[in-house]
Amino acid sequence: MSLPYAFGEPPVTGRLRASPEDFVVDEVLGLVPEGRGEHLWLAVRKRGENTAWVAKQLARIAGCAEREVGYSGLKDRHAVTTQWFSLPAPRQPVDWSRLAVRTAAEILVITRHPRKLRTGTHRANRFLLTVRELEGDLEGLEARLTRIAREGVPNFFGEQRFGHEGGNLTAVRAWFAGGKPPHRGQQGMLLSTARSTLFNAVLGRRIEAGNWLTVLPGEPLLLDGRHSFFIAGEVDEAITRRLREGDVHPSGPLWGKGGTQAQAACAALEQAVVAAEPLLAEGLEREGLEPARRPLRVIPRQMHWRQDAAAKVLTVGFVLPAGSYATAVMREIVRSD
């Protein structure tokens, strides 16, 4: 799916992820392990490794089942990332240095907590990204960065949600068309892929219509950093101010049974877009997923940047809430393969 830009094509081109060190991600957990309890919590820094593979190696070293290893979310493989894992505290001493032998990863912190680390526990991710071979309108780039820090960017699901060359989307279409159901471990990812496709389509339509940052009649407005929303009635100065300040955000559908939670004109727009993908919409409703909302906008917090014109390098840092993609921010900044 070709996604539109919110502010027109970026004014520069460049190379992102020339090496894993150019894409640094640190998990912001949102809680402090208590230092006691039945579970070990490990802060792990990895380079060029995916999360599931590291979890598998931790299970082998600790002598526990893979399903007993917990982590909050998947992190980019082609990057240097720091994230937390948990596992039942082993009864015998363990040589954790074996992790560095098995993988390009190292354990930074070992502590304890009473509970297993669950999916979605972390609050945010901190990114430090480097773009190389920068070419184009550098003055225009400075203005673009300033605008993004103030207004945010479309909260698109990133291409990694859809699998290599869109393989997840192909698989969920085949499943919903009557094919063999995937095994249980894959179903959640494929259902998320279907929802993400519909969300991106709605957001793309609203960007094209120029109303992705406009409150529509019947719009569910999401409170910043929370999953709760209220339906917009009359759009008064208070709502306009809260939208401008980033306290509330327009939202799009995470499709499920009963369709959309929007009303009036907002519901009509979403239903019209989703009508072009009846296979995905009907499949999600049939699987009984509860509908939910996702902000159409994400504002990179603590955003900072530095340009080195002589070296043709741009470094950008920011914090995003869990579930938002750094690639969605960077696609508005630089055109990159």
Score class of each variant (00 low, 15 high):
E21M: 02
V273H: 14
M189C: 09
W84K: 00
T193Q: 09
G158C: 04
P181H: 05
A275C: 08
E282L: 11
R132K: 09
A292Y: 14
Y5P: 01
H249L: 11
F7L: 03
V313R: 13
R132T: 05
A328P: 08
Q187R: 14
A265D: 14
K56G: 12
V202Y: 10
P114H: 13
W41Q: 03
P93T: 11
A52E: 15
I148K: 01
V109M: 00
S336W: 15
N50C: 00
V153M: 08
A262I: 10
C266L: 10
E142P: 02
G136Q: 08
A18T: 01
R115W: 06
Q271V: 08
Q83F: 01
L128E: 01
A105M: 04
L31C: 05
G178P: 05
E106H: 00
K180N: 10
A309F: 09
L254K: 03
L191T: 08
G178Q: 08
R226C: 13
R184D: 10
T260C: 10
L203C: 08
A143D: 07
R195H: 12
A194Y: 14
I61W: 14
I231E: 11
G35W: 15
T82W: 00
I107A: 01
S228M: 11
P295Q: 10
A326P: 03
A171S: 11
H39D: 03
L280F: 14
G120Y: 11
S86R: 04
A100R: 08
R195L: 13
D137K: 08
L99I: 02
K257D: 05
A322R: 05
R98T: 04
K116F: 09
G178K: 07
L279P: 00
A311D: 14
A174Y: 12
I299F: 14
Q92Y: 14
A194N: 11
R161A: 10
L29H: 02
M189E: 12
Q57V: 03
I231P: 10
W53R: 10
P220W: 14
A149H: 06
R150V: 03
Q92F: 15
A281P: 02
I333S: 05
K46T: 01
R17A: 01
P217W: 11
G48R: 00
A194I: 09
